[in-house]
Every structure is written in structure tokens, then in C-alpha cells.
Amino acid sequence: MAKNTREFVEIVDMDLFAGFLKENKLSKPTEVQSEAIPEFLDGHNLQVQAQTGSGKTLSYLLPLFQKLKETESDLKNQKAGSPRAIILLPIKELAMQVSDECKKISHHAKLRVRLALGGEKGKKVSTLKKQTFDILIGGPGRIKSMLEKKEIRLDELEYLVIDEADQLLDMGFMRELKAIRRHLTSPYQACLVSATMADDFDMLKAEFFSGMEFKSVSLIGSHGLSQTIETFNIALDYTEKNAMLDVFIKKEAKGSGIIFVNQKEKAVEVYNYMKQANLVKNLYVSHG
């Protein structure tokens, strides 16, 4: 039975979030939100682990916005290009999703959110170093590049969130993280968020967050990913993916399954390929 018996009014500032919660038809916090939000607000460094779809994103966004808002009046002469919080994600599509959620909250909380994506050039990027803003969202490679080019600075950073930390480690971003770490010169509160217990978490905490203590909020287990699922990664060029999908379905796949892709256009492309190749009998595509 779920332990979540709290109401949002018990754990967040309703003067700040009532409009957002009503607009998005959110009446009660999920279990991970109920457990993580108070810990974040109490100032703990957090390691949050819960399955996809459990509400992890709001478990750090709501307390992050609240804490930034609480100290907003204390700011004096905030430096341009110097975010108060950074949220790191492994891929562009996830960064855009979190940015969209931030903008929904910011519509009510009135904090400034910026999104930094790989491939951006020219005026859009260069103007960031001339702006004052509260939250910056992006991938480790993009943030590292911006720091090296002095487009942003981290000497006023108060909060650092690494979302989908398990994926980020699987994708080999440790070098970029270490490069970012060299720019962190002031104390800050950290939050690691993931769907699984990554083997490299202890190394990440030892090398990136040396000397920092973390409190764990973990719903992995009875509410987490099934331990009977085997996971593995195969590095492929874009042009090799359909061929690997063909091999996997013919030689490994048994029974029903789901194929996740990170773009609507790619979902249609995979569907059309599988249908033309007659890889499975019953095929359905869903994209929003």
C-alpha cells in the first residue's frame, strides 16, 4: 500500500503553487513527491530514485522554485550570465520537457528560466551572458562549452540538479561533469534523480560531490523497476539502428514489447520500417 497520505498544502507553499496545481489538475503529491519535497526544502543533498512516471520531476522542481523564491528578495546585484540553479539532463528532448514544466510553474512563480541546447549558435547563445536569470537547463556538454567560452559563470550557483543521472552516466558524461565541477567555487545544494540504482553513483558522488553527504529517497523495489528485467546498452551509429532492431526482434525478442523513441518523427519512421519489413504481426504506434 502506498505511503502517500499527504496533501500538497502540507508540504509546499500554496500561496506560490496553488494556481499551478489547479491549472494542471494536481490534487495530491505522489509518493516520491511526498517524501522528497520536504527533504529538499530542509536543505538536504538528495539522491532520489523512483520509477519513470512516478512524478520525480516535480519532486525537485517544486521545492527548487520555492527555495529560489524565498531568497529572491535577498539578492543584490545578481551578475549577468550567472544562474542560481542548473538542471543537467542527458539528452535534448528531456531538457525540453523539463524546460516546458519549468515554464508552467514559472508562469505563476515568476522566476526566469533559460534552456541551453547543443547546436545553438550566434545571438541566442551570446545574449545569455548579458541576461540575469534563475534556472538554466541543459546537457553536460553544452553547459561545459558555455563555461569554457565564458558565456555563463557558476560563482553564484545555489542548486545543482542532475536528472536522469543513471542515463547520463551510462552515456559517458563523467568527463564533462568533472569539467563543470572545476567551476563550482561556492557551496550549493545538490540533487541526483534517477529511475535505477546506477553502479557508478558512488563514483559520481566521490568524484563530483566530494565531501558532500546525501540523503536517499528511494522507491526502487516494490514500487520500482522489476528486477527481472535485463538492461544493456549497444552503441550504434544512427544508420545502424534499423538493422539492429531487425536482428533483435528476429533473434532475441519473445512475446509482446514496447519500443521507446525520443521523437515523434522517429516513432513514425520506426513504425513504417517495421511494417514494411513485416517484423511483427500486430503493430501500433503512439505519439503525442
Rank of each mutant, 00 (worst) to 15 (best):
S73L: 03
N272Q: 14
H108E: 12
A179W: 05
A253R: 13
L89K: 02
E156W: 04
K150R: 15
I152P: 00
T228W: 04
E23M: 02
G224T: 04
M274E: 13
V161F: 08
N77G: 03
K149T: 12
K123G: 03
S256K: 12
Q78G: 00
L62E: 06
V193Y: 08
S106V: 04
H107E: 15
R114V: 03
D246S: 03
K264T: 13
H223E: 15
V98G: 02
V261C: 14
E230Q: 14
F201R: 09
P29N: 10
Q189G: 02
A50R: 08
A195V: 07
I229G: 01
K69R: 13
T228K: 15
R181S: 11
D166L: 06
D155Q: 13
N233M: 04
A85Y: 06
I11H: 02
C191A: 14
I162E: 09
V193A: 12
Q33N: 09
F260L: 10
K150M: 03
S222Y: 02
Q189M: 09
N233K: 04
A109V: 14
F232Y: 15
L225K: 08
S27R: 12
L62P: 00
T127W: 04
E148H: 13
G81D: 06
F65V: 05
I234Y: 13
E72N: 06
L68Y: 06
D202H: 14
N233G: 01
L283E: 11
D13V: 01
E213K: 15
P38Y: 11
E31A: 09
V161Q: 12
F20D: 09
L75G: 00
D202C: 01
D13C: 04
M14N: 10
I152G: 05
V261A: 11
L219W: 09
G139M: 10
K281C: 01
A190Y: 10
F133E: 15
E120C: 02
S54F: 05
N242F: 13
S145N: 14
I234F: 03
Q33F: 05
Q51E: 14
D200Y: 08
Y238L: 05
L46C: 01
E72W: 01
P63S: 06
T57K: 05
T239P: 00
H108N: 13
E39C: 06
L204G: 08
E151F: 07
V48E: 13
M197W: 14
M174T: 10
P140W: 10
L62C: 00
F248C: 01
L236Q: 07
K149N: 14
Y284V: 12
H287P: 00
V125W: 10
C102E: 07
Q189F: 02
E176M: 02
E120V: 10
N272W: 02
A165H: 08
L21R: 12
F232S: 13
Q66N: 07
D237R: 12
L192N: 05
D246C: 00
G139C: 09
K275N: 11
G141D: 14
N278C: 03
A2G: 00
N4A: 15
K28P: 00
I220R: 07
I86K: 08
L41P: 00
A165D: 06
N282L: 05
S82I: 01
L236W: 06
Q227T: 12
N242Q: 10
Q227E: 15
G118E: 13
I152K: 07
M14R: 08
Q49H: 03
Q131S: 11
I152D: 12
I137E: 10
L245I: 11
V268Y: 11
M244Y: 14
F173R: 06
K104E: 15
M174I: 14
V268D: 15
F8W: 09
L89A: 15
